[in-house]
């Protein structure tokens, strides 16, 4: 590796950066908010993968979740847009400069309610972006109303029960063609970091639904998005381990009990099977797991579905390799001869 940190120095990553540049400003979210734990994991995942923060664009909609990008990767370019519309801003930004690494944070209301239309079409396009739903089943900033991912019968603090079925964003994303779909829990540091690193190795839309309890409005008995409930009903599909392309695979694994997926950037995603015969590249299997666990009142976590070589939106658009945003004039303004030719056709 390029950088070997000695024990007397602060630890630097492969591009020589310490952890600090991966941090953002001080969080203004509630103490104990799951979203802060997710920000911390984002910081570590980007640090460990050695990604230059200035190469990142971070995006969000509106809500508690959408404040998060301010709290990680301070050197990244950020765009906090309007409620539920982060996918369209992300789409424009990524096609304008495909060399940037895009990470967006949204919430369950931002995605599942006001933004469901844009979410749906983002998944269809397979835009290269990491799309994180910080999922707490309620609207925090407006003081705790149910969101569309709240489970049937889950209760508000006031005792009111949710009477509509939830949207399973993972199942929806798989159905719509997303090429990397994962679910995790903000309290599971190890798994979430590994899933984020795997998402960073993926080319295409990486959709992460992260259960992220709201300590203020949705962490009580009767809620199915509380810390206690999440810990009790988290059903890991297996251990997730991402061996980045820049590291030797020195992990020994048993091919019979571990599924290995070669990611787009050459990294290896190792998934230790707890569920017998579970194949994360099989879309039907992924749907089956989601439905079965949900029927048991559990939620499956880990990388649920991955299709590493699916054509992404940039390839589909057949874009030149350079960012569209900075193409020189001679490549974007046709010649006078071209205009003359057009004029002649119109005569």
């Amino acid at each position: 590796m390029a950088t070997t940190a000695s024990s007397s120095q602060k630890k630097a990553n492969r591009i020589g950066l310490e952890l600090q540049p991966y941090r953002g400003s001080k969080t203004t979210l509630c103490a104990g908010c799951g979203h802060n734990a997710i920000s911390e994991r984002v910081i570590h995942a980007f640090f460990e993968m050695g990604i230059e923060p200035s190469r990142v664009i971070k995006l969000s909609g509106i809500g508690c979740s959408s404040k998060s990008p301010a709290y990680f990767l301070g050197g990244a370019h950020g765009f906090n847009g309007v409620h539920g519309r982060m996918p369209s801003i992300g789409t424009g930004a990524v096609i304008a400069n495909q060399q940037m690494i895009a990470v967006g944070t949204s919430g369950d209301g931002d995605t599942g309610a006001i933004g469901i239309g844009q979410f749906v079409h983002l998944m269809r396009r397979n835009l290269p972006i990491i799309y994180i739903i910080e999922d707490n089943g309620c609207y925090g900033l407006t003081k705790g109303q149910f969101s569309p991912t709240a489970d049937l019968g889950s209760k508000l603090k006031t005792g009111v029960a949710n009477d509509l079925p939830p949207i399973d964003t993972c199942a929806l994303a798989i159905e719509l063609g997303a090429s990397f779909v994962a679910r995790s829990f903000s309290g599971d540091k190890k798994q979430l970091t590994a899933v984020l690193k795997a998402a960073l190795s993926h080319r295409g839309t990486a959709m992460l639904d992260v259960i992220s309890p709201c300590v203020t409005f949705n962490d009580h008995a009767g809620s199915t998005k509380s810390y206690a409930y999440a810990r009790d009903h988290d059903e890991p599909l297996g251990e997730v381990n991402l061996i980045p392309y820049f590291q030797e695979i020195d992990v020994e694994y048993d091919a019979g009990s571990t599924h290995s997926v070669k990611m787009h950037d050459g990294s290896h995603l190792l998934l230790k099977k707890l569920e017998a015969d579970y194949d994360p590249t099989d879309r039907l299997e992924a749907m089956r797991i989601l439905h079965e666990t949900s029927r048991r009142g559990e939620f499956a976590t880990g990388v649920i579905y991955v299709e590493p070589d699916k054509e992404d939106f940039i390839e589909l658009l057949n874009l030149v390799d350079e960012p569209l945003s900075t193409l020189p004039l001679e490549r974007v303004r046709p010649t006078k001869a071209a205009l003359d030719e057009i004029m002649e056709e119109l005569r």
Partner: peptide, 17 residues
């Protein structure tokens, strides 16, 4: 809504959109 969102996202990133 998405059309103007994409236009603004691209404009922010420096494209003529």
């Amino acid at each position: 809504v998405a059309a103007i969102g994409m236009t603004l996202g691209a404009g922010w990133a420096g494209a003529r959109s």
